[in-house]
Design a protein around this nucleic acid. Structure first.
Lengths: 153, 153
DNA sequence: GATTATTACCCACTATTACCCACAATTCTA
DNA sequence: TAGAATTGTGGGTAATAGTGGGTAATAATC
């Protein structure tokens, strides 16, 4: 365990029970709630998945939103961003409760794939994820190669 | 439940009863009245909705209004913003009483959508909200994309 | 001052949520 | 490898939240 702080990597398979509860991988828990205050943020992702942020990361986003002037467009954006977000905490078994809106949005079925995305966690329907990946990868092979050259040591 | 102070997120569905009462989501109550004095500010929003502020945030607005030079336009703005503002408190069940002016202004029907907007709360007619959002988002797709890039982590 | 209208307070019912316990499966440890 | 601890999953129950309506207190009207 214990890589650099708040760093999520790896892929895990879990189930959403009838009450909408999903387990957070035990290996993610310490990084998700480092101060042991037991709270973090859940929201819609930009792709068709759910994002889970440690509180520190979430507050960075909020800070940026607050600093935008209150124009009509900015209000609309904040609204869109905020309405599916919630502050959550896990129960004694380490699970979180997903709202039905989020479940619908991410197209979640019983089985879900949870992925560590460095500074946040993603929750996917495995099938949607598979299709999504195949599509992006085939459409953007060049971009993939370029990024690899740039980044990989 | 100790998030960052006065932070509202998420979307909730409630009903306005014949007496004009609406529930404030339980999750908002502590952030709305952190000092447990049970009072807060309620006013017309800039969009077609009702805004509910914790006192701390409301006072920031007042402060800014005060610091504007007293031009005719500014006075008119202050007047418009101030005339429908009132100090409210919730009853033992956690509801607030809306004036008929506010209900008319926001076009409220039985069903309302309550949205956490980071530092304040918005009360909408769900249909008006839907149309409003669609319109803004389609007219300002670029601005939305820019903001997303700038803000989302 | 009596009557009516309006507001605020109180109580009650139902649905939802949070909390608790249980147990199987897996991993860790000695 | 056997026992112990941790992890993943399920379900029951107590507590809370959301909604409605009645009644007393207050204000308004005549």
């Amino acid at each position: 365990m214990s890589t650099s702080p708040n760093t999520f990597t790896g892929e895990y398979s879990y189930t959403v029970d009838p009450k909408g509860r999903v387990n957070i991988p035990a290996k993610f828990r310490q990084a998700l709630t480092p101060e042991n205050n037991n709270t973090f943020a859940i929201t819609k992702g930009m792709d068709r998945c759910i994002w889970v942020y440690p509180f520190v990361e979430w507050n960075k986003v909020l800070e940026k939103l607050r600093n935008e002037p209150s124009s009509q467009v900015n209000r609309a954006f904040t609204r869109e961003y905020s309405r599916f977000a919630s502050i959550a905490s896990y129960d004694k078994q380490g699970r979180i409760l997903l709202t039905s809106e989020l479940i619908t949005f991410a197209g979640l079925d019983r089985q879900v794939t949870i992925i560590g995305m460095i500074n946040k966690i993603e929750i996917w329907n495995p099938n949607i994820l598979k299709n999504f990946d195949q599509q992006i990868e085939s459409e953007h092979t060049d971009a993939f190669d370029e990024l690899a050259e740039k980044i990989i040591l």
